[in-house]
Design a protein around this nucleic acid. Structure first.
Lengths: 225, 225
DNA sequence: TTAATATATATTGTATAAAATATCCTAGTC
DNA sequence: GACTAGGATATTTTATACAATATATATTAA
C-alpha cells in the first residue's frame, strides 16, 4: 500500500486504483461494479468506494444509476471522435496561451517528463504510457492560467487513455508520438507559437486517426461492446 | 418537501438545493461550508451532504480540501472569460450538429421552454431565468448526439448562471436575450444552420460583454472577492 | 518576549449498522 | 398460456458512531 501514502484520503486512493483498473481494461464495459465487492476487495468500507465511484462518474469512466449501481461506461467510435475533437479545440487554445509564458524552469520540467516518457517506451512499461503522455501535454499548458479549461482537458486526456491503452498498445505508435512531442516542444522553445499550435492539432489528429483505424479493426471482431 | 419527490436520492435533492443556494449567491465566495451545519439545516445526516458537495465540486461550484472542508469557489473575470470562450466554441459545435436533425416535436419542446422563459421574465421570476435559459440552449443541442460535450456544456451553463444571476439581474438584459433566442430559433427552423451558428456565437459574446461591463463596475466597489 | 511544543477542540473522514429501493421469483387470475 | 400481484432477496442509500486530522490555545523554555 505504498501508493496509499500519496493520498490524503482513502477515497482518493481507491479512486486512483479504480481508475487504473478501468483504464487498463480490467473491467468490461457495461460491467456492474458492486460497492460491497469492491469494498471488501480493497479492504475498506463502502463509503470511500462510493465516493471514488462518484469521482469516476465525474470523469466519465462509470455511470451511476440511482439504487441500481455503477456500470463501466461503454466505448464507442462516436465518443472517440467527440473526445479528440474536443481535445483539438481545447488543447490548442491552452497551448497558444501558455507557450509565450513558459519559463526555462518549465521547460526543465517538460524535459524531465519527456525523458520519463521515452524511458517508459523503451522499457515497454505500457501501463505508464498514457499517464506520462497526459503529464507531458499538461506540462505544456501549465501557464495557460485557465483552471477550468485545464481541468476539462485533464479529464479528456484521461478519457483518451481509456482507448489508447487498449487499442494503441504498439511500441511503434508511441514512438511516433514521442517524436512528435519532441518536435512540438522544439517549436514551443523557439517561440513559434502558431506553428506549435498547428503541429499540436495534427498530432492529436494523427493519434485519433490511428485509433479509428484500430477501432474499426477491433470491432470487426467483437461488435457490440 | 415537494421537490424531494423529483429526486431518487436525498443526495441529489441536497445537491440541487445547495446548487441553487450557491448560484443565488446565498453563500459568499470563499465561505466554508461545514458538513455538520448543512446536514442539520437540511435535517439529514452528513453522508448525503458529503456526496452533494462532491457533485458540486465536479461542477466547479465548490472546492474541497481534504480534511479541511469545502469552500465556495471564487468569482473572477478570468473565469468568466474562460467559461464564455468555451461556451462559444462548444455550443456552436453542438448547434451545427444538432440543427439538421431537429424534428418538429423537438421544436415543439423548444417553444414550450421559450414561452416559459418569456413568462418568467414577465413575472420577474429572477430565480428561474438562468435555469430556463440553460434549458432552452440545451434543447437546441438535443440532437447533437455527443453526450460528453453536452454534459460539458450543461456544466458551463450552470457556471454561467453563477455570474448572470448576480450581475445580470436586469429585466432589459434578459429581454434582449429572449429576443435573440427567438431569432436564433427562427434561423434553426429555416434550416439556416451556418447563420444560426454565427448568431449563437454573437449571442454568447453579447452576454459575455454585458457581464464584463457589470463585472468591472461591481468590482470597482468591492475588490478582491 | 518569543519560539516551540504540547494539548484541547472542532471538523472531516471512515466503519458499521439500519433503512429504503429495485429486482427476481412464485403464485394466482384472467 | 400470458399477465399481474405479492413477497423474498440482493443491493444501494442513509444514519449513527467512531477515528483521524487540522487548527487554535495555552504552556514552557530559551
Amino acid at each position: 500500500m505504498s501508493s496509499t501514502l500519496k493520498h490524503r484520503t482513502i477515497s482518493s486512493a481507491i479512486a486512483e486504483q479504480l481508475r487504473d483498473a478501468v483504464l487498463g481494461g480490467a473491467y468490461a464495459s457495461g460491467m456492474q461494479l458492486r460497492q460491497d465487492a469492491l469494498a471488501s476487495s480493497f479492504g475498506v468500507s463502502r463509503i470511500p468506494v462510493r465516493e471514488a465511484l462518484l469521482q469516476l462518474e465525474a470523469e466519465g469512466l462509470v455511470q451511476i444509476f440511482p439504487h441500481k449501481g455503477a456500470v463501466v461506461t461503454g466505448l464507442s467510435q462516436a465518443e472517440v471522435d467527440d473526445v479528440f475533437e474536443l481535445r483539438g479545440m481545447l488543447e490548442v487554445r491552452l497551448l497558444r496561451r501558455s507557450v509565450p509564458r513558459l519559463t526555462d524552469d518549465d521547460y526543465g520540467e517538460i524535459d524531465i517528463v519527456q525523458h520519463a516518457f521515452a524511458d517508459a517506451i523503451r522499457r515497454l512499461d505500457t501501463g505508464r504510457w498514457g499517464a506520462l503522455n497526459a503529464e507531458l501535454h499538461m506540462a505544456l499548458y501549465k501557464r495557460a492560467d485557465l483552471p477550468r479549461s485545464v481541468t476539462l482537458v485533464a479529464n479528456l486526456l484521461t478519457a483518451s487513455e481509456r482507448y489508447t491503452r487498449i487499442q494503441l498498445a504498439t511500441k511503434a505508435a508511441w514512438q511516433r508520438a514521442q517524436a512528435e512531442h519532441a518536435e512540438l516542444i522544439g517549436l514551443c522553445r523557439k517561440g513559434q507559437t502558431e506553428q506549435a499550435c498547428v503541429f499540436l492539432a495534427s498530432h492529436i489528429s494523427t493519434v485519433h486517426a490511428d485509433l479509428t483505424a484500430m477501432f474499426a479493426q477491433r470491432f470487426a471482431a467483437t461488435p457490440g461492446v
